[in-house]
Amino acid sequence: MSAALDARTPRGIAMGIEWLPVIAGLLVLYIPTFYGLAATIWQSEEHAHGPIILAVIVWFIWEERKALLVAPAGTAPGPGYSLLVFGLLLYALGRSQGIILFEVGALAPILAGVLLATRGWEGLRALWFPLIFIVFLVPLPGFVVDALTVPLKQHVSEIAEQLLYAAGYPIARNGVVLIVGQYQLLVADACSGLNSMFSLSALGLVYLRLMRYRSWLHNGLIIASILPIAFGANIVRVMILVLVTYHLGDETGQGFTHSFAGMLLFMVALLMLLGLDGVIRLASARWRGSAMV
């Protein structure tokens, strides 16, 4: 049994070769899709995280490859083929009608179906994380983005204005246009922070997966705080942009926007997330310590 666990043993290789038809099938299905995405929306700032998410999914599957190479403990052909066929139909509908949500999203039921049909429920359990992660590969549908972007922008500019006003800056707001001193700044769609919320959620989940905390409370607290943190970090970003523009001029502000502010936002949010994790760890250690006494 332990020999079969190693991919490099002859049996491992044989089991690897066994997967070739499935791999070929997946390539035929998804090379056109990802090629198309790479040529279109992945080039936009909003979806630039796409290839990274894909790489993360592939990497997590590779991490769990043992589950694919051992002989199956049992299979679940019924649910497996049903899911697979459902996924393939969803794919065909999405691909032919230009519904990216379906086309990319179908990867989840397709892979789940393959796992169930070949490795049973155990196989599915081993690879649940990369399967869930496919959610982040799917571009948010337009109507969701539209519904969220405008109110987010509105709140971000409102709060940034109020905070800077409280700090004594000569700032006024007209909708999503901030007027500071002689400058006018438009809080663009990209400043809504929707994208950073999306990518931080993904990063947060990867972090939790890597840390493998046992406590549901711990995991739950971190998951629940990802979105508020991303929102807060985005306000910080907008405020920094306003301050840079006010003190150093429009040009510096504009240059800053596209280079550094996004990175900064991400770092601030990440530090906040790690900080929170540290606090929770400390608190749970303390709690356990006092419980022992």
Binding site: E18, W19, L20, P21, V22, A24, G25, L26, V28, L29, P32, T75, P77, L84, V85, L88, L89, Y91, A92, R95, S96, I110, V114, A117, T118
Partner: peptide
Amino acid sequence: VMLLIGLLMFAGAGLA
């Protein structure tokens, strides 16, 4: 089983 799955996938791509 693997061959069948692979074939189903090719069929899916063709259907699209």
